[in-house]
Amino acid sequence: MGRKLKVAIIGCGGIANGKHMPSLTKVGQVEITAFCDIIRQRAEEAATKYGVVDAKVYENYKDLLLDSSIDVVHVCTPNISHAEISIAALEAGKHVMCEKPMAKTSEEALRMVEVARKTGKKLTIGYNNRFRQDSQYLHKVTQAGDLGEIYYAKAHAIRRRAVPTWGVFLDEEKQGGGPLIDIGTHALDLTLWMMNNYKPKVVLGTAYHKLGKKKNAANAWGSWDPKKFTVEDSAFGFITMENGATITLESSWALNSLDVDEAKCSLSGTEGGADMKGGLRINGERYGKLYDTTIELNAGGVAFYDGNEESDADLEARLWIESILNDTEPIVKPEEALVVTQILEAIYESATTGKAIYF
């Protein structure tokens, strides 16, 4: 394709400015031609900073989707509108990158998959942690079978005190949940991808709203307002897969724990194990002895050159655009993201009902 892909951004808030727009500007085959936000000033500022000279600005995404010249849409809005906007964009003939989580509910996520298949347009979800160097390396290890059958895994998303106090993060109606759907989703996606296992059988979950009630609490981004804190502050899941494998999922924005890890996983297989704690570590048994090794991910070794590769966000953006240009499957397939949403929803349902949820 000789011409550049024309990309539109719907939702010009934190994640668009922090990840999507800066990374897209580094992809040579792209130009960002349209920006939409319910707060027009945000869209205008984004257009000035990241757009082409004659970039268009909208307040209503439906108006933006009428532009037939737009090839790709990035949906960077609150969770409640992910499905609505993504489906409308697919039906308007656009390829869609939707921020994580895929949708607020599994029903919405399933509809997104169905519409993508029907329209023939590509759909992917913004699970950028797959594109980190440690994730990319570990995925090669697991897919090569070096760990054997992975039958036990842990998905880590624990913050000690880092509650996002801006935007709609604390609003259950707009987000669908708290740390589980916000950062637990990254850890679960990473774990399922490493295991290449997307067939859950039964889920048991718990969710807590304990520390969120505290006033004047210590927090990375300043104290939260307990009255506005309508989502859980921590949630945990126990997942059994159809093949008998077990996954434990831990997530928190606020938890009295020094064992802090986010968007990481630990894997245990028949031939070896791995974790992302203190670097990427592989462990196993060889010649009758146990071993563990830390993988050196820094490609440096030359003076004044640290060997840093593309950031996860930059690699995510580039490979997404290349999947469109080359007509190949995106790294994050919508069917995989759907299973993540289904499991998260089951954890919430189990936490509410006190019952195990069977698939």
Rank of each mutant, 00 (worst) to 15 (best):
I295E: 14
D259Y: 04
A254N: 12
A34H: 12
C12I: 07
L204R: 15
S323Q: 10
D275W: 07
A55E: 03
Q175I: 10
R111Q: 15
Q29L: 02
K4L: 01
L138H: 13
A92F: 03
E309L: 04
G148E: 01
T185P: 05
E59F: 00
E31R: 14
V96F: 07
I324C: 08
P78Q: 12
G307S: 11
G93H: 14
C36P: 03
K26Y: 05
N196Y: 06
M276P: 06
T352C: 05
V203D: 15
F236I: 01
T353D: 15
R130Y: 09
I87E: 15
A116K: 06
D134N: 10
G307E: 12
L24V: 07
K104M: 04
S257I: 06
L90I: 02
C98W: 07
Y287M: 03
M97H: 15
T119I: 02
A274N: 12
D71P: 13
A157N: 13
G2L: 06
Y348K: 15
A83M: 04
L297R: 15
I39S: 02
N128C: 00
M102S: 13
L267M: 02
K49L: 02
I9T: 11
A303R: 10
E316F: 08
L192A: 00
G278N: 08
E44M: 04
P164I: 10
E271W: 14
A274W: 00
I125G: 11
T33V: 08
K4V: 07
A155W: 02
I347A: 11
K227G: 11
M102I: 03
K277A: 05
K118D: 00
A245F: 13
R130V: 05
S257W: 11
D189M: 02
L147Q: 12
S323G: 09
A92S: 14
V339W: 11
A88G: 15
I158L: 05
F229D: 00
A162R: 14
F359R: 15
I331K: 15
N298P: 02
K174Q: 13
P330A: 03
S68Q: 13
E114F: 02
Y137Q: 11
F229P: 08
V72S: 01
R42N: 14
L190N: 12
A153H: 13
A47F: 02
N196K: 01
V332K: 14
K19C: 02
T119V: 01
A356T: 11
T230W: 01
L24D: 04
G51R: 09
E149W: 08
E31S: 10
A299Q: 08
G284N: 09
A317M: 05
E250Q: 08
V231Q: 14
E345F: 06
A43P: 10
M195V: 07
A55Q: 07
A207D: 11
G93T: 04
L190D: 09
G148K: 14
K26I: 01
E285H: 10
I331V: 12
